[in-house]
Simulated scan of single mutants.
Amino acid sequence: MLIVMAGLPGSGKSSVAEALGRRLVAPIVSVDPIEAAMWRAGVARDQPTGLAAYVVAEAVAGGVLSLGQTVITDAVNAVGAAREQWRSLAARHNVPVAFIEVVCSDPVVHRRRLEGRSRGIEGFPEPTWEAVERLREEFAPWTDHRLVLDAVTDVSSNVTVAVEFLATVS
């Protein structure tokens, strides 16, 4: 199965992805560290490294799927093209795809989490609240069936709900 995490920066999607990955014993392919690695390797930041990171994540996730294993991707997935990329990958490997969007319904909590986090991704600056707000306005409406989790709920409870949801995806 291909599990696609989605949501704004700081919403809690990576925390849910990590806990879900531990619970399912499934690898996580995260776009942000891939993009940061490109920059550290000397690829200029004015190049389309964001898009490239999604393409690299797709290749890595495809390799995991070809081994017959479940994989979790962790990215904002704000636009239809990104979501289509994952649908297409799942179709090529003949596996189900499950979208899980993580939101934070409390903007005060969301902003505090964003501004207080330090993920330790070398060379990757955390986005500002203003950048997240701009991205929220650009976030494409969903057409895919998905599970929406609210990060004001504790991670453990959200993972339990996610596992129950994944059991229904075929």
Rank of each mutant, 00 (worst) to 15 (best):
Asp74Ala: 14
Ala75Glu: 07
Val76Cys: 00
Gly80Trp: 12
Gly80Ile: 02
Gly80Cys: 03
Ala82Pro: 01
Ala82Ile: 01
Ala82Gly: 01
Arg83Lys: 14
Arg83Tyr: 10
Arg83Pro: 14
Glu84Lys: 13
Gln85Ala: 04
Trp86Phe: 15
Trp86Val: 09
Trp86Asp: 08
Arg87Asn: 11
Arg87Ile: 06
Ser88Lys: 04
Ala90Leu: 10
Ala90Lys: 09
Ala91His: 08
Arg92Ala: 04
His93Arg: 15
Val95Glu: 02
Pro96Met: 02
Pro96Thr: 01
Val97Tyr: 06
Phe99Arg: 02
Ile100Cys: 07
Val102Ile: 14
Val102Thr: 13
Cys104Gln: 03
Ser105Gly: 01
Ser105Lys: 02
Asp106Cys: 10
Asp106Val: 13
Asp106Trp: 06
His110Arg: 14
Arg111Gly: 03
Arg112Leu: 07
Leu114Val: 02
Leu114Ala: 03
Leu114Pro: 04
Glu115Ser: 15
Gly116Ser: 13
Gly116Arg: 08
Gly120Ala: 11
Gly120Pro: 13
Ile121Tyr: 10
Ile121Leu: 12
Ile121Pro: 13
Glu122Cys: 06
Glu122Ala: 13
Gly123Gln: 13
Pro125Ser: 14
Pro125Ile: 07
Glu126Gln: 14
Glu126Thr: 14
Glu126Met: 13
Pro127Glu: 05
Pro127Ser: 03
Pro127Lys: 03
Thr128Ala: 15
Trp129Thr: 04
Glu130Gly: 02
Glu130Arg: 01
Ala131Gln: 15
Ala131Val: 12
Val132Trp: 00
Glu133Ala: 09
Glu133Phe: 00
Arg134Val: 08
Arg134Met: 00
Arg134Lys: 07
Leu135Ile: 10
Glu137Met: 05
